[in-house]
Nucleic acid binder design. Structure first.
Lengths: 181, 181
DNA sequence: TGCACCATGTAAATAGTTACATGATTGC
DNA sequence: GCAATCATGTAACTATTTACATGGTGCA
């Protein structure tokens, strides 16, 4: 499970409250490990319990926000975790499962669903490309920045993969019967 | 959730017992939706309860096997499901999370873990390529076979993606400090 | 003053993993 | 006749999703 360590990473980058983390997750590390705000609040409480982070209420002026920051023990835990083994994440691709089903019973409206996913991946790609452009402009030349940009590029290539795959699937499935038997 | 429909698909392809399904899953549809044997047995019981499959005990000679086959209602359910909407599967990539962590605290042994994953993806690729070769030899020319081969090819390309991504990550991370701060 | 939205949660349901159990069969 | 393995599960735990709750703040 990567959530606690994804949160530690994000909090090292910048101490934050639950809601800030939740928002920030959606546009950074959450591209590789999604989490809902409910999960984040629960997990933050656990991290604090474990002594890996501490929290304080941010001063007046803004709404009251419970801000978390990583303690040395949390940083050590993150380092420890980096060298642990974890096998490949089992693949979970509902679209592929649907295509396999379509192979034996016919399309039955799957083309529309594929188009919808294609649009979602295209949107995601646009979003990533915009991030990349922004980051290149700000680029500091540090090793950390280089690694971060490499990760973003991997995300971009994954979207290209999906877009190409879905387009090819559409071509093949358009020739496939709407209904079998 | 795709598991019940993945099972229906697999059972339409060939009526099977739980253990056969479990074994077959590992070398076909399970490439896109993994399930343990425990999950499969539980889900088969639910499918039967729903009236989508029926079971009978296979005749003497072999070990006694509870064989399941899909009923017309199950086939209809599969068709119905194909036209339902389901949004993108949230991404879950522990390796990317680890790389992001490495960006801020240093490699700390991550290189070894990357090499290990690289080897696993290479093995998977070999396996898929062997399947592809076998299927091409048997190719029947049916529309169903075409769709199935297209799906396998998508799986192959995804492995190429990971192999390339991990190799690039290794290059960048080798230049990155082992430990930060 | 009341309505929308923000920040922080709790609760219940579902899905998936890990550990264990039981009887039957096959091979030595 | 005993060990290893197969086939079918059960149970407990963990992770994730979905639905709901509560108090505060800003603003029309």
């Amino acid at each position: 499970m990567s959530l606690p360590h994804a949160l530690l990473t994000s909090l090292i980058e910048k101490p934050s409250s639950g809601s800030e983390l939740s928002a920030r997750f959606d546009r950074s590390i959450g591209h590789f490990w999604h989490a809902s705000h409910q999960q984040i609040y629960r997990e933050l409480a656990k991290l604090e319990q474990a002594g890996w982070v501490e929290s304080f209420f941010a001063e007046e002026g803004e709404r009251k926000k419970k801000t978390y920051q990583v303690l040395p023990a949390g940083r050590e835990e993150l380092k420890r975790w980096l060298s642990t083994e974890e096998n490949l994440q089992p693949v979970r691709s509902p679209l592929m499962v649907r295509m396999r089903a379509a192979a034996v019973v016919g399309n039955n409206g799957l083309l529309y669903e594929l188009e919808r996913h294609l649009a979602q991946h295209e949107e995601k790609l646009e979003h990533y490309l915009a991030l990349q452009k922004r980051d290149q402009a700000r680029f500091q030349g540090t090793s950390t920045a280089k690694v971060q940009m490499m990760i973003l590029e991997s995300g971009i290539k994954l979207e290209y993969y999906w877009i190409k795959t879905i387009k090819e699937a559409l071509e093949v499935l358009k020739e496939h019967p709407e209904e079998i038997k």
